[in-house]
């Protein structure tokens, strides 16, 4: 089968247009941060800045009364800790459930978890506010991190992996007299590293983007992450276009780097995690 030249040109034309649609907003964001508002106003479509104007980045040194580094540190700390917690908790939970799927407690747990994941997330966060309030964790990192540790895609990826794990290997170890913690540590964990890496990266990307739970559980700006600071900014400095674009860049860069470094793993992992659900 020799591909038709004309059809091929058409296919590439559509994909290039599609890619422009996906990528242009990023470029426009970068330009917007480095061009003065007046310049953007006179020529919104310009593809290269007249000159690099860094005023926006000095304007966002303080956002909503807090230094920008506070949000950067918050984002890093909250995302990293919630990711580690999520991976460990979910892996252990999914492992236990797949090893003993017939236990009634585990069946209930699995259904309960699925129900939670079906509940409209934004509307779950509101009663979570009440729960966090009752636990005395309002405005704390702990409250935010604990809530962010729960996610569907993590669970499905681990469950899928452990289900496919060869039972014979575990049975052999049991015959040899190995205990469960020993089996987990010496047999399951070493071969689980690729899936652990995939889930870690995906969780990092997802949790970095979280804003609503952070906003709701926070009591003030001191626990805000970058997306929340950005959202705050859009309301507060409504028309400071340049500063908003600069803050959007800072919010986007870390995930862009992580994604580009691990794009294949991320796309494959997200597809697999979704197909299971």
């Amino acid at each position: 089968m020799r591909p038709n030249r004309l059809l091929q040109a058409g296919a590439y034309a559509v994909l290039i247009l599609g890619s422009l649609f996906f990528l242009y907003p990023f470029w426009w964001m970068v330009l917007g941060a480095f061009r003065s508002a007046e310049n953007v106003l006179t020529d919104p479509l310009r593809l290269w800045p007249e000159q690099f104007d860094f005023t926006a980045f000095s304007q966002i040194a303080m956002v909503s009364g807090e230094p920008i580094w506070l949000y950067i540190v918050n984002s890093l700390v909250i995302t990293t800790l919630s990711t580690v917690l999520s991976v460990v908790l979910t892996a252990m939970g999914a492992y236990a459930i797949t090893r003993r799927p017939q236990l009634i407690a585990f069946r209930l747990l699995r259904s309960g978890f699925l129900l939670t994941m079906m509940y409209p997330y934004m509307l779950l966060v509101i009663p979570v506010y009440i729960v966090v309030f009752k636990l005395g964790l309002l405005g704390t990192y702990a409250g935010i991190i604990l809530f962010l540790a729960l996610g569907p895609i993590q669970f499905f990826l681990f469950e899928q992996f452990f289900r496919a794990f060869p039972k014979e290997v575990i049975e052999a170890a049991i015959i040899d007299g190995a205990g469960e913690t020993q089996i987990l540590r010496t047999i399951v964990l070493p071969v689980s590293m690729p899936i652990v890496a995939t889930v870690t990266i995906i969780t990092f990307l997802l949790n970095w983007a979280q804003w609503f739970p952070v906003l709701v559980i926070s009591r003030g700006t001191s626990t805000y992450t970058l997306p929340v600071a950005l959202l705050n900014q859009t309301g507060e400095l409504g028309t400071n276009f340049q500063a908003i674009m600069a803050l959007a860049i800072i919010t986007t860069i870390p995930v862009t780097i992580v994604f580009l470094a691990a794009q294949k793993r991320v796309m494959q992992g997200m597809a697999e995690g979704a197909v299971k659900g």
């Binding site: 890619s19 997306p227 929340v228 959202l231 859009t234």
Partner: peptide, 17 residues
């Protein structure tokens, strides 16, 4: 990659743009 980059971009940042 071009098509998937917006998926991992924080939604607040994307929608602000």
């Amino acid at each position: 990659i071009a098509m998937f980059l917006p998926v991992v971009t924080p939604d607040v940042a994307g929608y602000a743009v």
